[in-house]
Amino acid sequence: MDIPKLLMHYLELWLPTLFVLIFAMSLSWGISRFFNSPHRLFRNGRFHRQVILLLISIFSIFAFILALPLPDSVQNQLLGILGILLTAIIGLSSTTFAANAMAGFMLKLVRNFRKGDFIRVDNYFGRVTTRGLFHTEIQDTDSNLITLPNLYLITHPITTTQQTGTLISARVSLGYDVHYNEIVKALIKAAELTDLGDPFVQMTELGDFSVGYKVTGQLKNIKILITAESELRKHMFDCLHQADIEIVSPTFMNQRLLKEKILAEKESSQTATSEVSPESLMFQKADEAEVIDKLEGGFESLIEDLEKMKSELKSLPEDKKSEYEQKIALKQQQLDNLTDKIQKLNNKNQNS
């Protein structure tokens, strides 16, 4: 038996199969490298990478079967079995894998929130750090990372805090012995001290023993949302006590015979403040994800400007080309610096 001819014969038979296998592995590796470095499609890179790799895996399996050195009848049987298996897998996992993937596509089309946004879903509240094909990750007020399946997000109402600003409010229960005009003045003052715009007060409840009030104002800088809510309550406490208005429990029954009011001891309105805001600790990863998202938007804009300048350079006279080339070089330097910054932030975000 001629061993070299036999080896060449088997090599010719299995060469297409090996080629498909090597090509699929190289393509998957290349796609992963492509989405791990700054480029034009950097925005939502994780989502695009998951979709592309999923499609590559499915097509690679079919191509591998077709490339096997088997008779057509056997290949058809294998393809039929594979089709049945895929149908069974999709059917059995429709509530998890496939459903989460479809939910991811739906959220991508709706675009009701992005990285860095405050969202509330059922009992979960935090800032978005990651948006993927199958899940969305948020960072809560305890700086914990919570992974929510996309199917859960489309089956529950999502409350998104607008980047342009939001309304924050606080409630308080006060007695019937104080006129509401005095209360409104004190609560409006508390909202103004919190730097809330267009504050207003609502009477929310006439209880058996107390009256419910709600003060609301517009907060423009949503990154200090948690701090602003706390500061609003502190200023409410101070302003009400400075106006000699006692804060009572909703179930408090006023049966005192004397007109003397029992108030908390008044202290200076100046309160100790921390140099580090709570939000910077609570939402560290969400802040980084938001910065990356904005930098990637600037990255795309720089690429478009650079290509436009290069095309305009060709039509310029020779005496003006030198000056314009310097502008292009400066723009290229900005692009390189931004690329390095995005890469460093991405590496830090992936390691955290």
Rank of each mutant, 00 (worst) to 15 (best):
M1K: 13
D2M: 09
P4A: 08
L6W: 03
L6V: 02
L7W: 08
H9V: 08
Y10F: 12
Y10Q: 05
E12C: 13
L13Y: 10
T17Y: 04
V20R: 15
L27C: 08
I31A: 12
I31D: 05
H39K: 05
R40F: 15
R43C: 11
G45N: 15
V51K: 02
L53E: 04
L54T: 14
L55R: 03
F59T: 10
I61R: 02
F62C: 06
I65S: 08
L66E: 10
P69C: 06
L70I: 02
P71F: 10
P71T: 15
D72L: 06
S73D: 11
Q75N: 07
N76S: 07
I81L: 10
L82S: 05
G83T: 00
I84E: 09
T87M: 07
T87L: 08
I89T: 13
I89D: 08
I89K: 13
I90H: 01
S93Q: 03
S94V: 14
M102E: 07
G104M: 04
F105K: 00
F105G: 01
M106C: 07
L107Q: 14
L107C: 12
R114L: 09
D117M: 08
F118T: 03
V121Y: 12
D122K: 11
D122H: 10
F125V: 01
G126C: 02
V128A: 11
T129P: 02
T130G: 09
L133V: 13
L133H: 12
Q139N: 05
D142G: 14
N144C: 15
I146T: 01
P149M: 01
L153R: 00
L153G: 01
P157N: 10
Q162K: 13
L167F: 06
L167Q: 06
I168F: 04
R171A: 13
G175K: 00
D177T: 12
Y180R: 14
V184Y: 11
A186H: 02
K189E: 04
G207W: 10
S210D: 10
V211P: 00
G212A: 12
G212V: 12
T216C: 03
T216P: 00
G217T: 05
L219T: 00
I222P: 06
K223M: 08
L225I: 04
A228R: 09
S230H: 13
L232Q: 03
M236P: 04
M236S: 06
F237I: 10
D238P: 06
I245T: 03
E246G: 06
P250V: 10
M253Y: 06
Q255P: 08
Q255Y: 09
K259S: 11
K261D: 08
I262G: 00
L263V: 04
S268E: 04
T271F: 15
A272F: 14
S280W: 07
L281A: 04
Q284G: 13
A286Y: 01
E288T: 11
I292V: 15
G298S: 13
F299E: 01
S301Y: 13
L302V: 04
K310L: 12
S311N: 14
S315V: 07
P317W: 00
E318N: 05
D319A: 15
K320S: 01
E323L: 14
Y324H: 13
I328W: 05
K331E: 01
Q333E: 02
Q334E: 15
Q334L: 14
T339H: 03
D340C: 05
K344Y: 03
K344W: 01
K344N: 05
L345Q: 07
K348L: 14
K348Q: 14
Q350R: 15
